[in-house]
Simulated assay, not measured.
Amino acid sequence: MAITITCINKDSGNHENPNLAITHLGWISTEGKLVKNTRLEIYNWIKDENGIAYVTDSNNKVKVITAETSNGTKYLKTEADSSTKNNLLSLPECK
């Protein structure tokens, strides 16, 4: 199953890597309902269960991938694309 991430929630902390500010990611279920999972839940789903997630806009569809900081903190980012914006951090806040 593939999901499209539609929104995020961030904490207000100061992070060296801005992707670490993401606490939750939202996506629309097949029933049309907003589902929110923590960053770690989505990370584990992609890494351990071969889940596939995307971020889309009017111009492109970019795959969400797992990453870790040098001290082992797990986070999500998107594959490189032609956009200069941060695809995940550009998403609106989940309600």
Rank of each mutant, 00 (worst) to 15 (best):
T56A: 10
M1N: 12
N59R: 15
N87K: 14
Y54G: 02
K85G: 07
V35N: 15
T6K: 13
V64H: 01
G32D: 09
N60L: 07
S83P: 03
G72Y: 08
K36D: 01
A67V: 04
L34P: 06
E68I: 10
N71P: 03
I3P: 04
D48I: 03
G26D: 12
L25A: 08
T56W: 01
P18H: 05
G13T: 12
D48T: 01
T73H: 11
T66G: 02
K10A: 04
K95R: 15
W45V: 01
Y54H: 11
L25G: 04
E79I: 01
N59S: 14
V35Y: 01
D81S: 09
S29P: 08
D48S: 08
K33I: 10
D81L: 04
E16N: 11
E68P: 02
N19S: 09
N19Y: 04
K10G: 01
N86K: 06
K61E: 04
N59M: 11
I22C: 00
P18V: 03
K47E: 08
K77M: 11
K85S: 12
L76G: 03
T66N: 06
T6D: 08
N50V: 05
L34C: 10
T84M: 10
Y43F: 12
D11K: 03
G72Q: 10
D81A: 07
Y75R: 06
S90A: 15
G13Q: 12
K63P: 03
I5M: 06
S83K: 09
E68D: 13
K61Y: 01
E79Q: 12
P92W: 09
D48A: 00
N59F: 10
K74S: 07
K74F: 06
T4L: 06
C7V: 11
R39D: 04
L76N: 04
K85M: 11
G13H: 13
L89N: 04
C94F: 12
N59Y: 14
M1R: 14
N59A: 09
T4K: 12
N86E: 08
H15T: 05
K61A: 00
L88I: 07
D48L: 04
N17D: 12
K95L: 14
L76S: 02
P92T: 10
V55A: 02
S29H: 14
K61Q: 09
I42E: 02
I22N: 05
N44Q: 15
N17Y: 10
